[in-house]
Design a protein around this nucleic acid. Structure first.
Lengths: 213, 213
DNA sequence: TAGATTGTTAATCGATTAACAATC
DNA sequence: TAGATTGTTAATCGATTAACAATC
């Protein structure tokens, strides 16, 4: 409604707070100041307070933040307090990596099926999840309530897969294919840009080694 | 030297230009304007011209840019015009995915060895690259000239692995473990933040579905 | 209470966009 | 040449940082 738009930069810092708060709790630490978080995350204390105050006053003057409470608040802000029913399309190394990743399940992301068109893979099970024939994807989406699709296919077919997913009601797409995918405005999409990351690394490597100022 | 510092945001856009220029060339298109690139990338034409002019005047008034030339210039800027000798530490799904990814080789990244501590994996070959015992990593690094290490281990050991890599002269680390890693200032490091990406997706999914304003 | 630390406003900084002269 | 489009400066916008009153 009248809420001011939160910038993307803020949202992308929240997972980092969330992770460090989890680390603190694992170590039995329950009290944390913006200054503590600053040391951990590398963001300024001022920025951290600004970020959090976009969503509410979670701290207490003179004390700081309760780590568990703050973590739960961020959990809610990010929408991690719901279950996500997930299908993975493309059951190669990356698809399998996602299916196998335990941290995924801990936050409520439940992988229900993988799809591939490789006959050698169809029928196999990853973590007890069956790899199904890609041709069965539309029917599967019609018969099951799925929230999120993970695209782990080669780039040549990633847009087609996205089209199948969205035309069958999927509103969240996590894309590992090295390409941009176009979706309607009501679909959330995130790209894991491995190539971009690698090339950026190459650049900074070069900076540090070529031009030892 | 006296060069003005290029902002990180600029660097992270370069790979996208690079990719779209490649697409154009594949389609036999050799001339491109900042306006064309704007339509493809979603960045403004003005921003694209600004970005490129940080590095030189690659265009021609009234004409635009020569796609092949511009692509080569970006290749050089990013430091992709050199070979990278790479080791992958952690030969699970992600490590194997990286080793198998063809786009990696096309840009001059050559994977020479994988390392793991799982006896079931040691001795296997991925793309004809042997998986070696993690214990042999320090010796291997001493005996071979390696530029880059890719960390695909669980987070509990990622810092230790990074320490081994850097203490044996590695100056570039590509980290897939879901944690921050500390390295000296002369080491370039890039994190592929899959968790952050996923949680951000959860947030935007929630925005689009909860608050149909 | 005194000390600590938040929440929040104001100041600064940097990045993006707009505009247009230069020029192919 | 006329038209197109860059390179580049100036204007705008937004994000970060600094500062401090509020208050636990």
């Amino acid at each position: 409604m009248g809420k001011k738009k939160i910038s993307d930069a803020v949202i992308r810092r929240l997972p980092k707070y969330y992770r460090y708060l989890g680390d603190l709790l694992e170590n039995g630490i329950n009290r944390v100041s913006s200054n503590d978080l600053s040391k951990m995350t590398g963001f300024t204390a001022s920025q951290i307070r600004q970020d959090l105050n976009n969503f509410g006053g979670f701290g207490q003057q003179g004390y700081g933040y309760d780590a568990m409470n703050l973590r739960e608040e961020i959990n809610k802000i990010l929408g991690l307090n719901q279950k996500f029913r997930v299908v993975i399309v493309g059951a190669g190394n990356i698809g399998q990596a996602v299916a196998n990743y335990a941290g995924f399940y801990e936050e409520g992301f439940e992988v229900l099926a993988l799809f591939d068109k490789n006959p050698k893979l169809i029928g196999l099970r990853i973590r007890d999840i069956e790899i199904k024939d890609l041709d069965d994807l539309p029917g599967y989406l019609d018969d099951n309530e799925i929230d999120m699709g993970v695209i782990c296919t080669p780039k040549a077919v990633s847009q087609d897969v996205a089209d199948i997913l969205t035309s069958h009601g999927i509103k969240a797409i996590w894309n590992f294919a090295p390409t941009d995918i176009k979706v309607d405005d009501d679909v959330a999409i995130e790209h894991v840009r491995m190539n971009e990351s690698l090339y950026t690394l190459a650049y900074y490597y070069k900076q540090k080694n070529d031009t030892e100022e």
